[in-house]
Nucleic acid binder design. Sequence first.
DNA 1: AGAAACTATACAACTAGACAAATCATACGC
DNA 2: GCGTATGATTTGTCTAGTTGTATAGTTTCT
Lengths: 236, 236
Amino acid sequence: MTRTPVWKSIAAALEADIAAGHYGAGDKLPTEAALASRFGVNRHTVRRALGDMSERGILRSRRGAGVFVEAPPTEYPIGKRVRFHQSIRATGRLPQRRVLRLESRPGDAGETKALELNAGSMVTVCEGLSLAGETPIAHFISVFPQDRLPGMLHTLEEVTSVTEALKLNGVADYVRRETRVTAEMPSATQALHLRLRESDPLVKTVGINEDMEGNPVEYGQTWFAGDRVTLTFSND
Amino acid sequence: MTRTPVWKSIAAALEADIAAGHYGAGDKLPTEAALASRFGVNRHTVRRALGDMSERGILRSRRGAGVFVEAPPTEYPIGKRVRFHQSIRATGRLPQRRVLRLESRPGDAGETKALELNAGSMVTVCEGLSLAGETPIAHFISVFPQDRLPGMLHTLEEVTSVTEALKLNGVADYVRRETRVTAEMPSATQALHLRLRESDPLVKTVGINEDMEGNPVEYGQTWFAGDRVTLTFSND
DNA sequence: AGAAACTATACAACTAGACAAATCATACGC
DNA sequence: GCGTATGATTTGTCTAGTTGTATAGTTTCT
């Protein structure tokens, strides 16, 4: 008789609730147990509905915490000027960076080549997370030439915006020379930091920013949580 | 689908930090609360990681004071006497070897030359993993001269320490004649065995041990997981 | 008979919050 | 200058709640 499975109608009911504004982005749904009793079914049946919605990106569950309504993906424009803080602020959320590592060391072959330095030149490395509000968006490793920007290490300890840090080091403006995009699977640590499963793919961008004289000032690798961000390219 | 528990990734990340020298012996780690927010998890999850590391002797915590680095994961001294079991035990952890391959065969050109044997002489080969506690530290291939040490093949089946195996074959003591160090990227198999990404570099050492009469008794190649081990050289 | 949907139970992993106990830094009194 | 009181920090412990996963059994439809 029941042509449609129970779990599908549960998913539909929950989607209707969300569409009606009953639950907004970021809100916590009732617990699986509560939903199970509300719909008069077993918890596993609810879980199937929730699992389906999670796969479609509507929900995200955190073990031990609950199930939450996911925000629609952030539009991240990549063009001549790539500015993280501006992009996030445009979506009405608070851009943040959390620094995981900050060090000076000799650059490896790839880094010195990208920054057009002599082999073995010192570089300043900043690794961290980009957040929109509370949600981690991306994991990045930025490499700066230390001889051209000797004060970056110190500046980055106090300033979280790259744009601002560069400005404080004499780079008033900078533009993106090139951006390469690939897909990668997250390492265990990345999955942890970005709060996603090891099976969720990342979008990796490798980019070089140069100052107005054409000198490279930053070689950056960024791993975006694929389903939280939509990269958009424009030639402006 | 979280294959590796979160707390294990946290422990691994902290161990890597310690191995990289971000926190030295005796240093105080960030507070549990700070680590929790850095990794985006609950404090209890951090505590589980710290507890695991404490059990392995890497950390020591004092109520009200903080968590301190007891011993860096692996300071691996390379000098006249290179003793894997001693080095690991000194860090308060259980040294282990897991044998992957054990065989006798004619030695190739490089092996017979290093061991000062006639071309085509038989050698005993032992390939395996070195572990500190649960953590794989290195992948090694040891080659022994079979005519000087005919019993090694059998002894190595029962004894995990090279020092002990050599002693049982009449080599009471031995010293390192020379050690060469290079960097290599791991093969897929090595990455798997050492539980690291194929992008994580290895430190490769090639060494010759000789008995007190100056006869080579072991020609060993070892690939260390670069972020878990710090090789230290001394001329004692 | 077999597959799909659903139920039932149990445990592991993680979150959340609260409070106790030890430690540390600082100000105060003398 | 020195000991002490005090309050903030930090780890240790406890209770409770939530999601993830595994196993096994029942119903229903074809």
